[in-house]
């Protein structure tokens, strides 16, 4: 097999050009490894060769991002490597941002696999952890050997197209993507161990950090609800009997759009639920218990609402990925806007 061709990106400091006073130097190409590239090369052994090193001053990069990136990408492109390694940047903020930017651009624009490394609190980590593999390093160059020992195996796997394990196994910063792994101890034992640490006020590491949920500002109130066109939407899985769209009972991959024009009520035997997360017998007897078409129709006739929109959208919100349901709504909301729907009632089970 041919050797993996590697280009290494480092800053002026690691290239031993100088410290802060030399941070203004523009991008420069040097053949072969420079500075930490020697340790990287040694770790790769016979399998890979560092064909060249791109060096750029941290100030220059961050003050002239576009120009610097263009120049750097052109240097990389000319040498057609299989892999780009950036840094590791440890806790150097501007260097971290540069490493993340270069690594992401190399993989997105040139299709070159890329790995970088930095300390978890490096601002570059927050900015790029979702986009590129960032090996978690110590906060100073004293952690170089550690960093290299984890960057190299991950980089090799990436280039060879092998399966990448979970962050805890490979040593990269979590990417917001959950990856399964088999632990050495069963879950109950891990829970007991964690509790003992917590009781002793020792540090422990949760396996699932709580997420931050994003928020949307409320829309202004509907001014004249008695004239508004109102749509019904549900995650309760109400579908025409027989589930014509084959919406899955759990982790749905699609939603249905059903015409309720003129329907007075969702009759038993004509409508049912596809939801696998609750006892379906009540909804199957009377689907209005989940999707209140009967009452909405009454209110429409009494003039309490302008009209009931003639389509309803339905999916199964049972173990369904938040991303999927978000995509469903982004899709059908276009029609709601086009059709001038002014308010939505969404029911969930």
């Amino acid at each position: 097999m041919n050797k993996i061709k590697v280009v290494h990106y480092i800053n002026q400091f690691f290239a031993q050009i100088g410290g802060e006073e030399m941070a203004h130097v523009p991008p420069e190409w040097r053949d072969g490894p420079v500075g930490p590239g020697l340790a990287l090369g040694a770790a790769f052994g016979e399998e890979a060769q560092i064909i060249g090193t791109v060096i750029c001053g941290d100030s220059y990069f961050n003050e002239n991002v576009e120009q610097a990136l263009d120049t750097i990408l052109e240097m990389v492109r000319q040498h057609q490597p299989d892999l780009l390694i950036a840094g590791p940047a440890f806790n150097a903020g501007r260097y971290g941002v540069a490493c993340g930017t270069v690594a992401k651009a190399a993989q997105d624009k040139l299709g070159v696999k890329a790995v970088t490394g930095m300390y978890v609190e490096n601002p570059g980590a927050d900015m790029f952890a979702q986009d590129v593999y960032i090996i978690s390093t110590r906060n100073s160059a004293a952690g170089m050997r550690d960093a290299v020992s984890r960057m190299v195996p991950l980089a090799k796997k990436l280039v060879k197209g092998e399966t990448i394990g979970a962050s805890a196994q490979e040593g990269y910063l979590p990417r917001g993507v959950r990856v399964n792994l088999f632990e050495k101890e069963r879950g109950s034992k891990r829970a007991v161990d964690m509790l003992v640490k917590k009781l002793k006020d020792q540090p422990f590491e949760t396996e699932y950090p709580m997420p931050n949920f994003d928020r949307v500002a409320p829309q202004p109130a509907v001014q004249n609800i008695n004239q508004a066109k109102v749509a019904l939407v549900t995650s309760g899985g109400i579908v025409p009997f027989g589930n014509p769209d084959r919406i899955e009972s759990s982790n749905a991959s699609r939603y249905g759009r059903y015409d309720i024009d003129g329907l007075m009520d969702l009759e038993e035997g004509k409508w049912a639920t596809a939801h696998g997360g609750y006892d379906p017998s009540y909804a199957n007897q009377d689907a209005d218990r989940v999707l209140p078409v009967d009452v909405m129709r009454e209110l429409e006739m009494e003039g309490k609402i302008g009209s009931l929109f003639h389509f309803t959208y339905s999916t199964v919100g049972n173990g369904t990925a938040v991303k999927s349901s978000k995509a469903f709504a982004e899709d059908f909301v276009k029609e709601l806007i086009q059709e001038n729907v002014q308010a939505v009632i969404l029911t969930s089970t």
Partner: peptide
Amino acid sequence: MVKEIERAGIPVVHICTVTPIS
């Protein structure tokens, strides 16, 4: 879904049993 509808500019009300999740 509720957030995407609201984000798109239509006021939405969520009728649900488990209000803490909402």
